[in-house]
Amino acid sequence: MLSAINLHKTYRKHAVQVPVLRGLDLHVDPGEFLSIVGQSGSGKSTLLHLLGTLDRPDQGEIHLDLARIDNLPAGARDRLRNATFGYIFQFYHLLPELSTLENVLIPQMIGHSILGWMVKARGLRRRAEELLERVGLKHRIKHKPRELSGGEMQRAAIARALVNHPRILLADEPTGNLDEDTGREIVGLLHSLNRSEGLTIIMVTHNRDLAMETDRIVRLTAGRVEDPPELAPTPSISPACT
């Protein structure tokens, strides 16, 4: 479904070149719940940004359903991010000026013109409310992000990521800022989405226990996938993830 072929990405800090990805290959199957682990600076987040078309690789290709997506024009990549990919972040990244419901509605607003929005507003709003109910935030619809707890904010962010029916959910350390129980709760939610809706999820995490619960673990070392991606996760990998 989603594949990365020979990805290279180098960041430049002043005159110093910092290579992050050095010829990474990865293939993700539909409905797979994949976790990416690795040390800080191993390129996990960079990989996620490249897969989600937030950034372009210096070299290599990314394919979605056999079509190359990394070299698409800006408008087409914007549409992919809006409708095909859903993002959740470590720091939730909700817009502080908007209520929980408005935050969830934002991807729908981005995807529709003013006229289109006006015509479909009722249905779109119902979808957002249903999602908020599903993540257990129905009573927090009108609250601003600063009035929510960390777990609630992350659940709102998940609702936002799902509102446009994405095929792939990209989660960048979704539990990194939460206590263990809340983190487990969030990953549980992701699992249920994966199972019930067949949502493909790619999750970057530091938490080996949470990674263990996913279908497959990919470990990055020095900008490459350490283990052959075809291999199924084995318990022996997890100690190395810390």
């Binding site: 937030l54 992919l80 991010r81 809006n82 990244h93 909700l94 817009l95 934002i106 981005i110």
Partner: peptide
């Protein structure tokens, strides 16, 4: 700045 990044991640275009 961060909000702008979020909006772009959610599919907002540069023009938007």
């Amino acid at each position: 700045t961060r909000d702008i990044g979020i909006l772009k991640a959610l599919g907002a275009s540069n023009g938007g």
